[in-house]
Amino acid sequence: MSESEVFGRVLIAFDLSPHSLTALEAAVEVAALFDAELLGVFVEDVDLLRLADLGFASEIRSFSATIQPLDAERMRLQLRAAAERARRTLAVSAERARVPWSFHVARGPVAAAVMEKVGGRDLISLGRLGWSALGRAGLGRTARMILGAAQVSALVLRQGGWAVAPLCALYDGSKAARRGLDVAARLARRETPTVVVVAGDDRAAERLEHEAAELLRSRGVRARFRRLVGVDRKTVLAAVRAGAPGLIVLPAEAGEDLGDFLAEAETPVLVVRDVE
């Protein structure tokens, strides 16, 4: 697999929330590392536009706490201004990292609009919470919908910056896991990543560890290994979540919904899916 083929594009769906700004930072860095194009998507939420048409709904300003009746025209202008700010923010970050970029404004339900833009080889970078749930931990409604519906690789982050090290990757021998290991090798750079080998028995674990070590060695990376033998997926995820202080590179099983795992994880998670 050549470097340019790891991810087709890095898609950043952002709405200027603090989490999505962290996601932008990570998206730019990953795009630069994997020579991928950065695709920014801003969605004009039709729910907000629809709400503005109701006539009696009001907006409570987050800074002044004043109540203003919602007005459809003003809402459209607000969204357009927010989109322009998003475009500028993306442009500045991408230009600084010399990453090719494009920016699209879509209208519709946010999740659907984002899913429309994303392809199978793409990586989607998401803030764990959007604007829609002020002050709440966990995974936002939109993010959960996107991750559940779009079976693509995803980088999920919380507000406050992201850091790769110490990196922890899961390896179970699947295609997604091999791809995940390849991504981990690139991300690890000079760090020594931890590889958690997941297997049904010790023999398989040994084989998988050898396989993973070989794969990493071919990338010039040495790793520490841990084994999780004969445990179910839920336990595996719980163990990884509890023990990984940095980025988790997690191969997803086909059709697997990782919403709950992502909602509870305190660290950034890179979900890697197999690409047919």
Binding site: L16, R50, L54, A57, E59, L134
Partner: peptide
């Protein structure tokens, strides 16, 4: 009702079956 974030603040939107009511439906 659903709590939504606008670029400038928060709004409460009436729901029906998890979907925000359109003006016509309302």
């Amino acid at each position: 009702f659903a709590l939504l974030r606008t670029p400038m603040g928060l709004v409460l939107a009436p729901l029906r079956e998890g979907e925000i009511l359109s003006p016509g439906e309302f």
